[in-house]
Design a binder for these strands. Structure first.
Lengths: 346, 346
DNA sequence: TTGAAAGCGTTACCAA
DNA sequence: TTGGTAACGCTTTCAA
């Protein structure tokens, strides 16, 4: 286990500042933390010395002595998905206002890395944690919470009610997506995504089911399961659709994620005369930036990533700073419909 | 400035372990750091107690006492660009082997955020820093290095030779891209990108110039400057190209970045009968994942992101662990050509 | 308003 | 192989 010496050079410490300014250590500390408690003249002198010496206070020692920290960890499920970057941006903005810094860790949908970073932030210890976990893989979280480190979940329901979380209303998102397609005149809907073990996708599907059920049988909804939610999965589905007889093809597709939608579009367009949106209208989910460039601009349910990050940071900060009065709660934010060419028929 | 109390609950400390195991504090420390120096029986007893109590050693105190840290910071220029995520993945893998953890910070091409994170890692202090900076904005870096915190630059040349850096060979990349188009039969090349203040793009352009100059006048190369390197810039260029008389249009385009290429393709395709690659062959740069989904698969110069991250981490670890024998050096890695449909004519 | 001194939780040294 | 103890650099009482 490598450990790196941090100070090979001579770094000025607070005691050096004290000596140079002709005051005691405690006074320098006060000058930094409670400027009002120190005489203006002294204050100015100390500040001058700090500048001259280039003194920077050691956050590690500060944390240890104060028993507190300003570092907040953000463990993201997959930073390649821009939604998590949006969340981190929102959280960062809110945290900065209260003097906290956010450090990112990318679990990359890998169980081991997720628990490695969980450990890291526990040991550090970080003041708190923003955690977008793998579905159903919350192990290790309780140990952190027992140490008094608050955790706010993103995009996942807490196992018990005694914890904060920020969620997107996936059921309603699925509902809105389906409603939109119905309004475009679609009558044979399909939902593409894997819904077995991923609650958010499950919810989106259920929302679509609800929208369709309101048509009292006038519309069909078929579930086309995928293995994952990647472009390849969409391509496979696109090919399967092409293989069907025309009358058996869906005329409206809700993809569980933008990437899947992109795959479907790509596969369907390359080898057929089917056209979007007139033969098939399609809508994705996430508003992933990578779809903005697509040749057929993709309609989508935009996740409120920025807002989710903001809300999560606010909850976390409240829990960190007012642990006693804080009441755990779950915030649910609404996605919104973004209509682009892939589904606009009228 | 909010500071959060870390231990609201009763967290077991090393002294608790010592008491429970009936040994001294130093022995517990040894059991953790130098197991060979402690009697097997004692070792086992201590480990048992650690398990029972759920003891986790406080990395802050450890850093302070040992004067060292295992945290390495990675300040990324723009995590929305998957190349930086690749770099971080490469660095993470290498760092983990030596017991270091990498924490990410996204400057998002914002000067203020960049210097905020620079400060954060300096104060922490982190054992070292991987730094993909804004072009020409290395301010604040010297202060860190003076404190003995090593920094390895990514995608940027150090201001002086006394520092490690990992670069991609952009000149050669530009050269290869141009050569490829020439081999496809293109005779009127254009380079799209803004080359004023961004050295990498400058180099790519110069590489293209070199390739063209080797044709002894048989081929023209035109520079189409952009404001930035985003999709919108590409769209604007695409439209300008459409406005030209056919004989004045380029038949081969080197885009400074994939996003620009996507924009050009989108603009050109929507409103014209021009076809890729037969009327215009186009190649991008970066191998950004967001281009993998494009309807016309984009040829590109793939940046060796993973390798760059690995190399950078190796340099950093060497500098951290063997400061005296370490020799600063700059590593240059080669991009490679990825030919897809957007430029394949034969 | 300032100074002195006791921690914070660990490491590392020196004796035993 | 173990125990005792002085750091590490800072915050925070409590007196002066």
């Amino acid at each position: 286990m490598a450990q790196t010496s941090i100070r090979s050079h001579d770094i000025p410490r607070m005691s050096d500042v004290a000596t140079a300014a002709g005051v005691s250590l405690g006074t320098v500390s006060n000058a930094l933390n409670h400027p009002d408690r120190v005489h203006p003249d002294t204050l100015q002198r100390i500040r001058q010395v700090i500048d001259d010496l280039g003194f920077v206070r050691n956050a590690t020692a500060q944390s240890l002595a104060a028993g507190s920290s300003t570092v907040v960890g953000f463990i993201a499920l997959n930073l390649a998905n821009t939604i998590f970057l949006d969340m981190s941006a929102g959280a960062e903005a809110v945290a900065a206002k209260s003097g906290y810094s956010i450090l990112l860790a990318n679990s990359g949908m890998d169980v081991e890395r997720q628990s490695t970073y969980l450990d890291l932030f526990r040991q550090l210890p970080a003041a708190g944690l923003l955690f977008a976990p793998m579905p159903h893989l919350l192990s290790g979280m309780e140990q952190i919470r027992q140490r008094g480190q608050p955790i706010v979940l993103l995009n996942a329901s807490p196992p018990a009610a005694n914890q904060c979380a920020v969620l997107a209303n996936d059921e309603h998102g699925g509902y809105m997506a389906a409603r939109h397609l119905l309004e475009q005149g679609c009558r044979r809907l399909a939902f593409a995504g894997y819904i077995d073990s991923w609650p958010p996708l499950q919810q989106r599907y259920l929302g679509a089911v609800r929208a369709v059920s309101e048509t009292a049988g006038a519309v069909q909804l078929e579930l086309i399961p995928t293995h994952e939610v990647r472009v390849e999965d969409g391509v496979a589905i696109g090919q399967r659709i092409l293989d069907r007889k025309p009358e058996r093809r869906p005329d409206g597709i809700i993809a569980g994620a933008d990437l899947v939608a992109n795959g479907i579009i790509g596969a369907v367009m390359t080898s057929s005369a089917l056209r979007f949106p007139h033969d098939i209208a399609i809508i994705g989910y996430d508003d992933n930036r990578s779809s903005w460039n697509a040749l057929i601009p993709l309609s989508t349910m935009a996740q409120p990533g920025l807002e989710m990050g903001r809300a999560a940071a606010e909850l976390l900060i409240e829990e960190m700073t007012q642990a006693d009065s804080h009441v755990h709660r779950q915030v649910m934010l609404e996605p919104h419909l973004v209509v682009r060419d892939s589904s606009r028929r009228r």
